[in-house]
Design a protein around this nucleic acid. Structure first.
Lengths: 217, 217, 217, 217
DNA sequence: GATGAATGAGGGTTCATTCAT
DNA sequence: GATGAATGAACCCTCATTCAT
């Protein structure tokens, strides 16, 4: 929702400000050209700092990349967590909100949605480990969402969590990428609805649905 | 169709045999390390030819990459086409077969499934155009499948084709990538079934479902 | 002599204390890694001061290096001078004491013995001039020693001073470096004796030797 | 003696010729500026090849350096071996010839004599191991020479070989370096004689000397 | 057709030095 | 006096591409 998600924590001191500017530029440049095509010189120029300054704040190109991705994942994960913790919310609305948040995030940070998808070929084992960890953290939130759906009776109790999560995140990424290519901002609402309905009607617990139907009558 | 690309190892003409070996090595190396991390030297070595030979058969690294991706997409598209053209097949089984074919392909050519997903950042406009074309060709087959589902009454008639295709391919890629990471070959059957059910039960035409239910009784 | 350079750690004036600490760290770091491999950052860290502080006390890396070498050469030269000025000492014992002092110094400051040997390639003309000057000062003391040997009749009067000094210092450095590599501290006594004997018996004035022999009988 | 010691072995094929030219340039540049100050660009320019060509023939800067040093040590060691194997030569003349060869070599390859002396700070462990090996090979020849001196009765039998070798090589290096600084080519003869006399008269077996003296009468 | 030595533009990284605080 | 963030020139090395054989 807020246009600037990665607002610097203590932006008054100039040092942190520089680091934030570098991370910002990294987000832009890595997003535009991808990791291997982006150059440190470009990022430095975009951040209006010397090339050496990058290496004062980050140990290497990989480290800068990692810092940027971490900031991003923490951003989306924080939002998703707060969605999950919203009290007194019927599950379908929770699912919808969650989906919308994901799509909105990949819209606002369209340059970067790729990194969730991108294979980590050519990275150091250390960075791969980090990326894996962040991916797992993200998937954990998705899993929690689905688990809630089962718990509240909206999803069939016999579902294999992992499969549902795979399908769900697959759809999220696919729609996120479509936005990347086609710039349909105003479709987020419709797309989130579509995904929600597809999931609910597909894996909803029919007996419970019937119950609900009966309750309404 | 084209006798060159599908030509197996037993080609008599030695020139085509060399080119095939190069494409094979390109598939392996590009798959293992990704486009930017793979080097022409590696590919040449893997193909047991000189580096110069690559440039006799392909104009550039991008050209070789394009050649490889084309071969791949033609391979899967050919298979999917033949699935779609199988006569007298109830739609659910068609959907299942299609899905299985996709998953199987991404398993057998796991090194390459990435290329469908990978963003084409850093490529020349020319190559990007080609990649886009092949992607569209692949999506066209998916669209055709979904269209059939609607036509035959298994899917709701009011569905927006593009959205369904996006969701479907998203799931395909997600499961394909999971295979990449986890090596669950024998899950293909189960996964395809899961996807099929999720789709059918989710976007199935309820009235028609009722019809079917009634027909059974 | 100079109260700054020889000032020990217990200096009251804090500024001089900082400079001394820097010189100490320079000695350690330059000694361990060599001039070109040592970095100002390392030296600053070892001296527990900021990088900028180095530049308050020394104009440049070369200047710091020069300051350190100067301190060292003054140290050894002072010692050698005092050896040479010891009154009423038979020449062979003087020679032995001189040699031992050199070997002991290169043992205690093993990290630095290298600098006498190290070629000054890549240094500024200014620094090279200084290094040359200090080398000459050191050689002058050696020359003085040999001259004394001739004057007192222990060495042949027809010797070319420069050649003897070259040979002598060559042996000193060779044994000094051997210590650097092999850590035989307790060999200094034996080595000094060996060098003394080699020199004396080799370049001694035979006629005088005969005289001595006869005097003993 | 021969002006061109490192004459290419099979200089007809152009590839070997290029490699030889690179080694030659490396000798010059490394010699002039030292390892750390020399740049690959300079060496490439001196060899009239592209920078990349260096990396076709050598894996790295260190590797090139190692190749150069190896060629040098093999050159001098070969010469010294042939000196040692000269048949029917009285030991003093052998000693003289050996010394002259060393001095002449360090004159002809003055840029490089340094490498025997230079400490290997800042090199990889691998290169250090190689340098150590070559140094030992060179010292082995010196040891062999001294051993011969003892065997033939010219040197006292109770001498510690290692000490004599240390002193001998120390003098060789010192005179070699003096040449480096002062360009006294025509002094080699005199210097070699000086070293020989210093050694012989110093560590000669007196009883044998007496014998010789008596034989002469 | 095939080869591989040669090329050089370009990238990541280091580090002595400066200067505002 | 002291600091350390910022700088940018310079370096080693990679690798797609070429071309003589």
């Amino acid at each position: 929702m807020s246009d600037k998600i990665e607002a610097p924590k203590t932006a008054i001191c100039p040092e942190a400000e520089t680091k934030a500017r570098i991370l910002d530029s990294a987000l832009t440049i890595f997003g535009e050209k991808g990791y291997h095509q982006a150059t440190m010189a470009e990022i430095a120029e975009a951040a209006r700092v010397g090339k050496g300054t990058l290496y004062w704040h980050f140990a290497s190109k990989e480290d800068l990349f990692a810092g940027m991705v971490e900031q991003l994942t923490q951003g989306i994960n924080l939002k998703l967590k707060s969605v999950l913790e919203t009290p007194d919310q019927p599950f379908p609305e929770l699912l919808l909100a969650f989906t919308k948040e994901c799509l909105a995030y990949s819209y606002h940070h369209r340059e970067v949605a790729r990194f969730f998808m991108s294979t980590s070929q050519g990275f150091s084992e250390e960075l791969r480990k980090k990326l894996r960890k962040w991916r797992i953290e993200f998937l954990a939130l998705n899993t929690e969402l689905i688990r809630l759906g089962i718990e509240t009776g909206y999803f069939r109790p016999d579902l294999e969590l992992a499969k549902v999560v795979t399908a769900f995140t697959g759809m999220l990424f696919a729609f996120g990428e479509r936005q990347l290519l086609e710039e349909n901002w105003n479709e987020i609402e419709a797309e989130a609805l579509f995904i929600k309905d597809l999931l609910i009607q597909g894996i909803a617990n029919k007996s419970r649905e019937d119950q609900i139907d009966e309750e309404k009558t």
